[in-house]
Simulated assay, not measured.
Amino acid sequence: MSRLDSMLRRFTAQRDGLNWAAQAVAELDGDVLDMGLGNGRTYDHLREILPGRRIWVMDRILQCHPSCVPPEEDFLQGEAEPMLIKLAEFGQSIALAHYDFGMGIKEDDVAESARLSPLIAAVMKPGGLLVSGQPLVGFEQIKGPETIAPDRYLFYRA
């Protein structure tokens, strides 16, 4: 598969997975967490499909498209560990989280997601959903939408 086809497959899975998860948490009160702002495409999509929900955004630096800059009070800038600890001060307030950290080196990305998993668990509401491009540990893995290959995106219940 070409890198372009792989990227398209990933973006489609990400969109379909987030749409599915947004519907699945419709009855669960709580905020949303987007881990890895990047260009802001996912954040922009979350704003569209979850209007009225507070969306926390986390990244090392703010470098997104100008139309996708989150409100200052919702942007947690810095390394993931201290930002998740800071967010945990609000309690288990996250109903839906999207994990999109990674540098593209599979073994490093898997190790990072495993290391961050307990900190992510500390902010998740019981029954909340996680949509992730990397494997997470300590959560119940669940089946996502039929349109997504099992290895392309992962889904978890807190």
Results as ranks from 00 to 15, higher is better:
Gln141Lys: 07
Gln77Cys: 14
Ala114Phe: 03
Gln14Lys: 05
Ile94Pro: 02
Glu81Trp: 03
Ala111Asp: 01
Asp44Asn: 02
Glu89Phe: 06
Pro150Thr: 11
Pro66Cys: 05
Pro51Tyr: 14
Asp100Gln: 00
Ala22Pro: 08
Lys125Arg: 14
Ala95Phe: 14
Gly102Lys: 04
Asp151Gln: 13
Asp109Glu: 02
Val123Pro: 01
Glu89Ala: 12
Arg3His: 08
Arg9Ile: 08
Val110Trp: 02
Pro70Tyr: 02
Arg41Met: 11
Arg157Lys: 14
Met7Glu: 09
Gly38Ala: 12
Asn19Cys: 10
Ile94Lys: 06
Ile55Phe: 02
Arg53Ile: 08
Glu48Leu: 08
Met124His: 00
Glu73Arg: 09
Glu112Tyr: 00
Lys143Phe: 11
Ala97Gln: 00
Arg60Trp: 15
Leu4Ser: 15
Asp16Cys: 10
Tyr156Leu: 10
Tyr43Pro: 01
Met35Gln: 05
Leu119Cys: 03
Ala80His: 06
Ala80Met: 06
Gly102Thr: 05
Leu50Ile: 06
Leu116His: 02
His65Leu: 01
Val57Trp: 03
Ser117Trp: 00
Leu33Pro: 04
Ser117Gly: 01
Cys68Asn: 11
Phe155Thr: 12
Gly133His: 10
Ala13Gln: 03
Ala95Tyr: 05
Arg15Phe: 15
Arg157Ala: 08
Gly144Thr: 03
Pro71Ile: 13
Lys106Trp: 07
Gln63Val: 12
Thr12His: 11
Tyr153Phe: 14
Ala121Gln: 03
Pro70Val: 05
Gly144Ser: 04
Thr147Phe: 15
Phe101Ser: 07
Phe90Cys: 04
Glu72Met: 10
Gly30Asn: 06
Ile49Ala: 09
Asp59Phe: 05
Asp31Thr: 05
Glu81Gly: 02
Ala22His: 15
Pro126Arg: 02
Gln134Asp: 02
Val25Glu: 08
Arg157Phe: 07
Asp34Leu: 05
Tyr156Ser: 02
Arg10Cys: 04
Asp108Ile: 13
Tyr99Met: 05
Asp34Asn: 14
Ile85Arg: 15
Asp151Val: 11
Ala26Asn: 04
Ala88Arg: 09
Gly17Ile: 10
Arg54Tyr: 10
Ser117Phe: 06
Arg10Glu: 04
Val123Ile: 15
Pro71Phe: 09
Asp34Pro: 02
Phe139Pro: 00
Asp108Lys: 05
Val25Pro: 13
Leu8Ala: 15
Thr12Tyr: 13
Leu8Ser: 05
Leu50Val: 11
Met7Gly: 07
Gly138Trp: 12
Ala121Phe: 01
Asp31Leu: 07
Ala24Ile: 10
Leu87Trp: 08
Leu8His: 14
Leu87Thr: 10
Gln134Pro: 00
Asp109Trp: 03
Gly91Pro: 09
Gln134Asn: 13
Val137Thr: 13
Val57Leu: 00
Asp109Thr: 01
Ile85Phe: 04
Tyr156Lys: 03
Phe75Tyr: 07
Leu8Met: 13
Gln141Asn: 00
Arg115Tyr: 04
Lys125Trp: 01
Pro66Met: 04
Pro135Gly: 00
Phe11Cys: 02
Ile49Tyr: 11
Thr147Glu: 13
Ser2Ile: 07
Phe11Gly: 00
Gly133Tyr: 08
Val57Ile: 09
Leu28Ser: 09
Gly128Thr: 01
Glu112His: 01
Asp29Arg: 06
Tyr156Met: 01
Pro145Phe: 12
Lys106Met: 12
Cys68Ile: 01
Ala149Asp: 14
Asp108Glu: 07
Val32Asp: 09
Ser67Ala: 09
Met35Leu: 11
